[in-house]
Write a protein that binds this DNA or RNA. Structure first.
Length: 486
RNA sequence: GGCGUCAUGGCCGAGUGGCUAGGCUGGGCUCUGCAAAAGCUCCCACAGCGGUUCGAAUCCGCUUGACGCCUCCA
């Protein structure tokens, strides 16, 4: 088996990946809060972890991939209404209608981007009982306190024996010194404390009974509870966006330690942000682009529509831990590269074999694995794929050769990397189109070829130009004319 | 203000103490009736200033700039 290295946010180092249980991987990724449509930035994170999931599967691991849906509203600030309630009021819907609507949107969009579904997709509201139980345990362990029907985690006390800041590399002392002057309405003992349970005011729509009265759970708790329920108190990989590192993931560690007295996660992984105009995409600031706008081209930041696969390819050209800036120019360049890759893949199926091989497939293949094994370096993998594109074209021109066994190996590897691991879909070219359309175009090609033989350039150019206007590109090659549909 | 990350050729975007990333664009060539498409090929960059080193874009320091987190956020 290949030796995989993963960058662990806990140590800030690349570490050799060794699962807790041989051959099995438990992976938890923080899912979305479903109060609005997912934007492209959200999609990037889930796509990154989809690639990671796919590669682990490709390596032969049995992976349990858990990704939650946050369907309980959380506070925007200390005494305001939560986001799901706000949205419910605005759209005149039940909170659970909001949740349902945007959960479906989330699933649809991720499916369009060819993301595999997780093994388990638990919801926060489906685990209220477990959350209450966890709070009771934390109180029993002396690390939480109740005030006025709300329960808070005692960060200062926790930090005396444990390290609050172990993940984000913050020092709690700094945090205390730099606390902004708050309004003073909070029930918390310290500003650093965070809510495990929050009392629900009369206007609060989502509410549950608890030992502390009617309320709702704190945001960080659901992930602690659901990850340990489905993956155990200690599991291999926990992922999420960089912006969740603090406070969310830091709090998860603290809660898990307070409940189970163990560090919950062996490898913490954080995907970086997708920016637009140099700034983070964000639901709250409005600096974002929706997937459906990518598909239709209906957004001021782009000049045309792009397919989901092109967007996926665009993102896979950057490393998941790097900031990636979205622009029309960048995705347009990606589209051209993507099309070239797909053209070569189509050509791959038509290659002829030779007695000998002039190209070392095994070496090339290992280079691809080396890239992925180095913390899932998809940009390097893609660079290698373009090396393969070149080889494919040269074989087609009889300037390189592969024997039958090597060609099989080559095909298999390319398909595995392109489709299984990176998760692209071949949306291009004529094989997808109906026989009838193919037949019609073949007739036109034959007519044009006759016109060309007759040197009737007016007619032959007219056929060519009118087809291109429809998005059908005729390609004159040595072995006759073929066509591609854009 | 605190903590952290990053600064690469026209654009996007990898990487390494000494040997070509890759994509897009642009130049050249092949193919073509002309084109287009496609293919081949060329274009050697690493913010600034110091330092370590035989050698640094890659390590260290400072400066400048950008971004992220510190408040819901993927």
């Amino acid at each position: 088996m290949q030796s995989l290295k993963i960058y662990n946010s806990l140590s800030n180092k690349k570490e050799v990946f060794k699962p807790i249980k041989d051959g099995f991987v438990g992976m938890y990724v923080c899912g979305p809060t479903v109060y609005s449509n997912v934007h492209l930035g959200n999609v990037r994170t889930f796509m990154s972890f989809d690639m990671i999931y796919r590669y682990l599967l490709h390596l032969g691991y049995k992976v349990r991939y858990v990704r939650n849906i946050t369907d309980a509203g959380h506070l925007t600030d200390d005494d305001a209404e939560d986001k799901i309630s706000t949205k419910a009021r605005l759209e005149k819907l039940e909170p659970m209608e909001i949740v349902q609507k945007y959960t479906i949107d989330f699933h649809n969009i991720l499916q369009k981007f060819n993301n595999l579904p997780p093994s388990i997709e638990p919801t926060a509201t489906g685990h209220i009982v477990e959350q209450i139980k966890a709070i009771e345990t934390i109180i029993e362990n002396g690390l939480a306190y109740e005030v006025n029907g709300s329960v808070y985690f005692d960060v200062i006390k926790y930090n005396k024996t444990e390290n609050y800041g172990i993940l984000s590399k913050r020092k709690i002392e700094d945090a205390i010194e730099n606390t902004r002057a708050l309004d003073g309405q909070s029930d918390k003992k310290n500003a650093q404390d965070f809510a495990l349970w929050k009392k629900a005011g009369p206007e609060h729509i989502q509410r549950w009974d608890s030992p502390w009265g009617v309320g709702f759970p704190g945001w960080h708790l659901e992930c602690t509870v659901m990850s340990s329920k489905y993956l155990g108190e200690e599991f291999d990989i926990h992922g999420g966006g960089m912006d969740l590192k603090f406070p969310h993931h830091e709090c998860e560690i603290a809660q898990a330690q307070a409940c189970n007295h163990v560090a919950p996660v062996k490898y913490w992984m954080h995907g970086n942000m997708l920016t637009m105009n140099g700034k983070k995409m964000s639901k709250s600031t409005g600096n974002n682009i929706l997937p459906k706008e990518i598909f239709t081209g209906d957004n001021p930041n782009i000049t045309k529509a792009y397919s989901a696969s092109v967007a996926r390819f665009f993102m896979m050209q950057a490393h998941y831990r790097s900031v990636l800036d979205f622009s029309n120019e960048a995705i347009m360049a990606a589209e051209k590269g993507f099309n070239r890759l797909m053209e070569a893949l189509n050509l791959l199926n038509k290659l002829e074999t030779s007695a000998n091989s002039s190209f070392d497939v095994s070496k090339w293949k290992q280079q691809c694995y080396d890239a992925l094994n180095d913390d899932f370096n998809t940009p390097i993998l893609i660079a290698n794929l373009f090396e393969a594109v070149k080889i494919i074209n040269l074989i087609h021109d009889h300037k390189e050769t592969l024997n039958e066994q090597d060609l099989d190996n080559f095909k298999q590897a390319i398909h595995a990397f392109v489709f299984d691991v990176i998760g692209l879909e071949n949306t291009s070219i004529s094989n997808d189109n109906s026989d009838k359309l193919n037949g019609v175009v073949e007739i036109l090609i034959a007519l044009r070829n006759q016109a060309r033989e007759d040197k009737d350039w007016n007619l032959s150019d007219k056929i060519r130009d009118e087809l291109i206007a429809l998005g059908i590109q005729l390609e004159d090659g040595k072995e006759g004319t073929t066509f591609a549909i854009n």
